[in-house]
């Protein structure tokens, strides 16, 4: 082997016996055949499930507006019997805290001048606070369409079945309808701070305790 003549010709150079070639050839054909058969059959079909349907949907429920509270109490609690000054002006006294940031609307654009615990539609019809969405959607007609279709606003319950439609005031403060920022939940843990070493310690101390 010290001979480094590249032209050396070995004597085992015949390309092999017919028998081995035939056997190998058959094996290759068999494997390829099985492969193509498997390919032709395709992947495992999903499990066949029994036919199943859901019961018919009940009518949706409209979510009532939030309860009256200290911040939002019925107007008549204070204003009952008072004369009405329809001129828009700075809010004062108990209304100093009230933010009115709804376009350039003034109270009486929505609240009825006389029946203060009602809202008044532009055609003069009085509606309860409960049905405030009828008032809102006089201006926000596009939103009404989308709300009815379920694209604007929120629904809870069932995608098929009992549904609650959240009305406008369930989410928006009618006096200041833009969403207020809220505190977000904590950020995720970084992958680099997931470790295994510290987990041994509490476990060992646990074991020592009887």
């Amino acid at each position: 082997m010290a001979d480094d003549d590249p032209g050396e010709v070995g004597d085992q150079s015949q390309p092999g016996g017919l028998a081995t070639w035939v056997v190998l050839g058959l094996a290759v054909v068999l494997v390829l055949g099985l492969l193509s058969l498997r390919c032709a059959l395709g992947p495992d079909a999903a499990r066949s499930y029994p036919s199943r349907t859901l019961p018919p949907e009940p009518l949706p429920v409209l979510l009532p507006p939030p309860e009256m509270n200290d911040e939002y109490m019925p107007c008549d609690d204070c204003h009952e019997g008072e004369p009405t000054n329809p001129t828009p002006r700075e809010l004062e006294d108990d209304h100093e805290e009230t933010v009115l940031a709804h376009g350039d609307l003034w109270c009486l654009r929505c609240h009825d001048t006389d029946q203060r615990d009602n809202l008044r539609l532009s055609n003069g019809t009085l509606v309860d606070f409960e049905d405030s969405w009828k008032l809102c959607t006089q201006c926000h007609g596009q939103r009404l369409e989308e709300w009815k279709a379920g694209v604007h606003g929120k629904r809870t319950g069932h995608w098929w079945g009992a549904k609650e439609y959240w009305t406008c005031v369930a989410c928006h403060d009618p006096h200041s309808p833009v969403f207020k920022p809220i505190e977000p939940k904590p950020p995720p843990v970084r992958p680099s701070s997931i470790t295994w070493k510290p987990r041994i310690e509490p476990e060992e101390t646990d074991r020592e305790e009887p």
Partner: peptide, 14 residues
Amino acid sequence: RKYNPAFIMPIIFL
């Protein structure tokens, strides 16, 4: 023994 090239060469080629 001497290996049988007729047997082993096809396998090596494969």
